[in-house]
Design a protein around this nucleic acid. Structure first.
Lengths: 339, 339
DNA sequence: TTGTAGGCGTTATCAG
DNA sequence: CTGATAACGCCTACAA
């Protein structure tokens, strides 16, 4: 079958431990044997068995990526590949493999996490989003394990995370609309169970409040379906007797859906209704009109989360550092006022 | 530290092998001990160490996903999440974990593949695309190992794969344009090193040929950058003295870039220039005008590839089955003639 | 139905 | 600088 470390040892006329040392670049080993061992490895087509190595070293050199349970929508969102790109870039650079969790429902999520943690299949876990009352959080509290998450835990928890200041970001987005003269502003949010949604809603309310605009529940719409949700939400907003003249969408996909709905109903953007989105995905530049959006720097979120995690895996110490990635409003044509 | 199988055994008053049998649902084991062992596992918070299990069973219950070397563009393309969704759905159902390769350059690709294969880290490998003269193919020929690929190998090779009939698909797309009266038709293709590109180009040429339209090299444009490439390609096509009146784009992203270029230069779609794309990603419905596109059923490609792979891992026999997923042209507004 | 013993391929410790 | 030897945690004949 495939060659083992013993075969290499035999062929090179040394002991298995010596071969092992060559593999791991042990400093005190003669150039001569090093060469001979390398030759033997080459000749036999030897490759170390990672499983055996992991077992012995008690570390898998892999990091687990836990995808939130609403898999389907999550995959569809350009956010996912972009954050994954950030993660893989770091993982590659640092020599870690990536294990994607294939969980599904909420229950599965927990099982998947515990399996990863206790199963020693990975050395650390990356959480791609956080929900309200997230059962995963309890698991994390009970098991000290390298973890890093994108988004913030709903309640303070001693784990590492990266996030944007979503309250502030949405405050500024809303404020932008107010400054352009809008008074009736709608909010199209994602699933209410995500922390990010509630944070953005808070920023929205804060801006309205500060401007002395009364909150109106009928103007706030939440859905767990992105583009569809935006479409549906916008349709309802436009059907109101006192329809909004502007809309904050907590995801670009919502914004696109909203724009599509507005267009089909004969409203023009930005003349009849202004729209601002979140994430600044590539499409924002290409849509017609181009979409004003809050850049949350997805790639950087991924990179930072991965770094935060690897740091812990290397040091062996859990960290509760958190990093806030700054956001910026990228003004395009969907809100007018651009001259 | 964390509980092992021995701890459970001790606590339940049985031997480790009995515990092992309970874990793997061995048939001949009394209900009573089964209960007791389960209880002990519960109390100790026991979870099997996957590495040890893999080492002993010589199987990792994981499948490796090899992402083509042009990582960045690949991540950006909606093709990626969609095919990954198909793969994860199957993997989840069948109880396999997914290991993402983090290779990069061409050389890295090969290393990544050999590491996966020989490192016993995965039980099978999924190749997400195939290039001309692909060095991976040689590796696969030398090492019998469960493999399944999306796309077809350039030269016949005894491995399992799923593909569309890209020649025929592009033939029909081009034919569609010809039937609408177009005579000068451009082709915007992906990187020439991908087999899929050359197949589609062939279908394009075939349709032209059949219609007695002479091929014109100046009308064919290839780029490895998707949206950008489409934009650039279209710009050049429109600058020709005898510009085309229609364009076949071998990827929807190309088509979007092309449409953007046309729009900026003041051309209307479809009146001035018709466009047909490939993949039928969600955006095709939303763009303005909506994009006529060939649906290649990405999700199904992923599902099929995964099934083909798992079949081999289970049976222990390499297969060289191949499946052709049918395509269909979805006619929208970017080519006119829709009434 | 259950226990014993050896092995899966590496690494780590301790001598030499 | 190198070699035994004992883990690492689990599985699987072979016995009982």
């Amino acid at each position: 079958m495939t060659a083992t470390i013993k075969d290499v040892a035999a062929r090179a006329g040394v002991s298995p431990s010596t071969v092992s040392r060559v593999i791991s670049n042990h400093p005190r080993i003669s150039e001569k044997t090093k060469r001979e061992v390398r030759l033997a490895m080459e000749e036999l087509g030897y490759h170390p068995n990672m499983m055996a190595r992991s077992l012995a070293k008690k570390s898998s050199e892999a990091i687990g990526v836990l995808i939130p349970s609403t898999t389907e929508e999550f995959f569809m969102n350009p956010f996912f590949p972009e954050v994954l790109r950030g993660i893989t870039d770091v993982a590659k650079r640092e020599g870690y493999d990536l294990l994607l969790s294939t969980s599904d429902s909420g229950k599965e999520d927990v099982r998947s996490l515990t399996r990863m943690i206790h199963g020693k299949r990975v050395d650390g876990v990356l959480l791609l989003s956080s929900r309200m009352h997230d059962p995963l959080m309890q698991v994390l509290q009970e098991n000290p394990f390298p973890v890093s998450m994108i988004g913030r835990p709903e309640i303070p928890l001693p784990i590492a995370w990266v996030n944007n200041d979503n309250v502030d970001a949405c405050y500024r987005a809303t404020r932008h609309l107010i400054e352009l003269g809008h008074q009736r502003i709608g909010f199209l949010g994602g699933d209410e169970k995500f922390v990010v949604t509630s944070d953005r809603l808070q920023g929205y309310n804060q801006a309205l409040d500060e401007a002395g605009i009364p909150a109106d529940r009928r103007l706030m719409f939440a859905s767990s379906f992105m583009e569809q949700g935006g479409y549906h939400g916008m349709t309802r907003l436009l059907a109101l007797p006192d329809r909004p003249t502007a809309v904050v969408a907590s995801d670009d996909l919502f914004a696109f859906g909203a724009m599509r709905a507005a267009g089909e109903l004969g409203y023009r953007i930005p003349e009849d209704i202004a729209v601002v989105g979140f994430n600044n995905v590539r499409l924002t530049e290409m849509s017609n009109p181009s979409l004003t959006s809050v850049d949350v720097h997805i790639y950087e979120l991924g990179v930072t989360a991965a770094n935060l995690l690897i740091e812990q895996m290397r040091s062996g110490e859990m960290s509760e550092r958190h990093v806030i990635v700054p956001t910026q409003l990228v003004v395009r044509h969907s809100c007018g006022g651009l001259g």
